[in-house]
Amino acid sequence: MLSIRRSSISLIRCLAPNTKSSNLYGSSHFRMPLSFFTSKAELPSPETSFIVKYLIDSVGLSSEKAIKASKFIAHIKSPSQPDSVLHFFKQNGFTDADIKRIILQHSRLLCANVDSTLKPKIEALSKLGFTKTQFVKLVTASPTALNYLNYNNVRPRIEFLRAFLGSNDKIVKAFSHDVTLLARSFEKIIKPNIIFLTECQVSDAIIGFLLTKVRLIIGRPVNVLKAAVKRIDELGIPRGSWMFYQALRSICSNTSEQVDAKIKLLSGLGFSEPEISSAIRKQPYVLSLSEKNLRETVTFLVKEAGCDHSYLSSHPNIFTFSLSKRLVPRNLVLKLLKAKGILKKDPGFFNVSSISESQFVEKFIFRYGEKMPELHDVYLSASAGEVPS
């Protein structure tokens, strides 16, 4: 029986969503100045074939990706220039996979002059105590960072950020995660934003989280960050708290109009102003959810799960759970148990929703398996999106 339970739990876990996030910028976010390259890139012509073949044979790109990457470097007619770039990368510890990733994102790097452009980049970091391995990690994660790796640009940033991040590895992680930390003006944007946050009682640790975990906050114009903090103040979230950090992430991921629209939506769904304020103060991530997600989740929780608005505003974490993978299947199980008179006491839907998958299966599926053997199959089907009408 134990082995059956374990296999069942494993099967159910397989039904959980698998989310991935990407920390890389697309090449459209920052334009590389022409001075970065030895010659101006031209638009490809239909006759161009040398560079496509080179990208396939020497870099390892597929035909489709080689054609896409070649449009920026169609003027290259000889292997000497790109060969020197590939040699530089390999000499400094980049693997073939690293190089493929870099060139796929920024093929124009094959036009860069090794002696006057690329070598000074690695030398700038070396002077500041960074290793070749750290250089490789940074450039592989964010090839656009190469454009800003000159000594005068990176030195003040690194010296300032060490107070919040400590190690060079964390600084590399921050630059890799958010290239605006290198691209934006240090004196006019990066430094003033961090100083402003410290004035808002945000701890060094939370600033470190913002630098390494969240994109496009520290690199925003100062007035934009100040407007976000003003809005957080209006929501009643205390400065310096962990909820302030969460709210900053949520507010900065939306425009002011989007925040207003979500608050208006919650009001239209039956929440009072105090309930909305309470929910956002307790879980600012509510503002990061799409209007569609909010509407569908609230409608289900009220109409199907029987939760009133006061209960939901007191337990706003429930909005962050997957509707199809968690809330709907677990509510179905509770309904069946209640209909059979098996559950003598209402466990509270938030409590049921917040426990782990294995705990839920053990407590509500296996526990009542003898009385309702169909529960297991019903739950598996519901978790897979097959909900009986």
Rank of each mutant, 00 (worst) to 15 (best):
P17E: 10
K20S: 11
N23P: 06
S27M: 00
R31Y: 01
K40T: 15
E42W: 00
E47W: 03
K53C: 06
S63C: 01
A69I: 09
K71E: 13
F72Y: 11
I73Y: 00
P79S: 14
P82G: 09
K90V: 01
F94K: 07
A97D: 12
D98T: 06
R101H: 10
I102D: 02
L109Q: 08
A112W: 01
K127Q: 13
G129S: 10
V136S: 01
P143A: 11
A145E: 03
L146R: 05
L165F: 02
G166A: 07
G166M: 08
G166P: 10
S167I: 03
S167V: 05
N168P: 04
N168S: 06
D169C: 03
D169Q: 14
D178K: 10
T180C: 02
I190T: 13
K191R: 15
T198S: 13
C200K: 15
L211T: 05
K213M: 09
I218M: 12
I218W: 01
R220E: 14
N223T: 12
K226C: 06
R231E: 13
I237P: 03
W242K: 14
W242T: 12
Y245H: 14
R249K: 14
S250I: 00
E257L: 12
D260K: 11
K262W: 01
K264I: 04
S267H: 08
L269G: 11
G270N: 11
P274N: 09
P274M: 03
E275L: 05
A279G: 15
A279F: 00
L287A: 03
K292H: 04
K292Q: 12
E296W: 01
F300P: 13
V302R: 12
D308S: 05
H309T: 09
H309Q: 09
L312E: 05
N317H: 13
T320S: 14
F321W: 05
S324G: 01
S324Y: 02
V328P: 12
V328R: 14
V328S: 04
N331S: 07
V333E: 04
D346G: 07
F350H: 12
F350S: 13
S354R: 13
A384K: 07
S389R: 12
